[in-house]
């Protein structure tokens, strides 16, 4: 899954930022956001949760899910 995230993050760096948090070492935020499984993706906008989804998926699906939460059309 990591190569997918890396590729998406690089391609859409001007649209959104990609961050990652290790649930094994960062229990506070893991607990605070009720993480039950990995990978879990939470989309923040202006400091607020815009949406979330769970599970590994191809990069195009991953992008589609994120842009859908952000209500951004796919760039040409």
């Amino acid at each position: 899954m990591k190569p997918v995230v890396t590729a998406v993050a690089l391609e859409y760096r001007d649209t959104f930022t990609f961050a990652k948090l290790d649930v094994n070492t960062q229990p506070q935020k893991t607990g605070e956001y009720h993480i039950r499984g990995t990978p879990t993706y939470i989309v923040f906008r202006d400091g607020e949760i815009a949406g979330a989804f769970v599970g590994a998926m191809p990069s195009n699906v991953l992008v589609e899910r994120i842009l859908g939460i952000l209500e951004i059309d796919e760039p040409e």
Binding site: M1, V5, T15, F16, T17, F18, A19, K20, L21, D22, V23, N24, T25, Q26, P27, Q28, K29, T30, Y33, I35, T38, P39, T40, Y41, I42, V43, F44, R45, G47, A50, I66, L70
Partner: peptide
Amino acid sequence: VTDANFDTVVLGSKLPIVVEFYT
């Protein structure tokens, strides 16, 4: 990101940000 800088990096981000909680 870590528990310590989560608020600054994530909540303070000007751009939309996607956080992957991973193992």
